[in-house]
Each structure stands twice: as C-alpha cells, then as structure tokens.
Simulated scan of single mutants.
Amino acid sequence: MLVDISNAVGGYLHLVFIDKFNGWVVLGLVAQVLFTMRFVVQWLASERAGRSVVPFSFWSFSIGGGALLLLYAIKQQDPVYILGQLFSLFVYFRNVSFVLKERRANRASGGA
C-alpha cells in the first residue's frame, strides 16, 4: 500500500514537473516570481521605514507579474484566473495613476 502511494505521488510529480514542463510553464513561473517580488520589495521598504510602505516598484512588479499571469491564464483557458488578473491589473494601473498624479502635484507645488 505504501509503495502504491509512493508510486502514485512520484508519478504525479513527474507528470506535473517533467512531462508538462514547457515554455508556458516557464512563463508562468517567471510571472509568479515577479508577482512574489512585489511582496519582497514592500516588506523590505516597510522594514527600513519602520511602518507600512508601498513603494512604486510594488506596482511595477504587480503589473509585470499580473500581465504575464493573465497571458498564462488565457493560454490555459482558465476563466477564474483570467477574470481575477483582469480586475487586478485594473487596480494596479489605477494605483499607478494615483501615484503619478500625486508626484505631478508635488512637483507643481515645489514639494518633494
């Protein structure tokens, strides 16, 4: 019984990580790394400041990772991830527009 479970698990892992490994999986992995990096940069910026901070690079990684994950979801024909990433990308771009608007206002008023 234990050997059967071990063979089943080994077969599953081989199927997922070897047999199905292709360029789309690489794209999905790169997208996931970009998406994860947004949390790393946010965490490091917050640790340095001693408070919660959302640096601009958080939004850059969010857009890059989200766009690649959307492409991956479209290729995989996954409606859950397609809709989720479309909405998320809207939110990321909206936040970037707020950041850029605030920066323009600060420059116009002579602020930092």
Rank of each mutant, 00 (worst) to 15 (best):
V9K: 03
D19I: 08
S109K: 11
G111W: 03
N22G: 15
F61Q: 00
F17G: 10
V40P: 04
Q32L: 10
L29R: 05
V80K: 09
G28R: 07
H14P: 01
F58G: 03
G64D: 05
G66E: 02
V26L: 14
Q76I: 06
S57D: 08
L100D: 04
L2A: 11
A31C: 06
G64S: 09
P79A: 10
V33W: 00
D78H: 12
K101V: 01
G84F: 01
P55Y: 01
D78S: 10
M1C: 07
L68P: 03
G111S: 14
S109C: 05
R94A: 14
R94F: 12
S60A: 15
G28D: 02
A112D: 12
L70R: 06
N7T: 09
A112N: 12
S6L: 14
G64M: 04
V53R: 08
M37R: 05
A49K: 11
L83H: 09
D78V: 05
F61N: 08
V96H: 04
L27I: 09
L69N: 11
L34M: 14
Q77F: 07
N106P: 01
M37C: 13
R94H: 12
F35H: 09
F58L: 06
V80S: 14
G65W: 00
Q77N: 12
F87L: 14
G84S: 11
G50R: 02
D78N: 14
G11R: 00
Q32K: 06
Y72E: 09
F35V: 01
A8P: 01
F21E: 03
S46E: 05
G84E: 10
G23H: 06
F93E: 02
L68E: 03
F61I: 00
G50M: 07
L15D: 15
G10D: 08
L89W: 02
S109F: 05
R48L: 02
A112W: 02
A31Y: 06
K101P: 00
I63A: 13
F90N: 07
E47V: 15
W24Q: 05
D4E: 15
F17Y: 12
L15R: 13
G110K: 05
V30Y: 09
I5K: 06
V96D: 03
F90P: 00
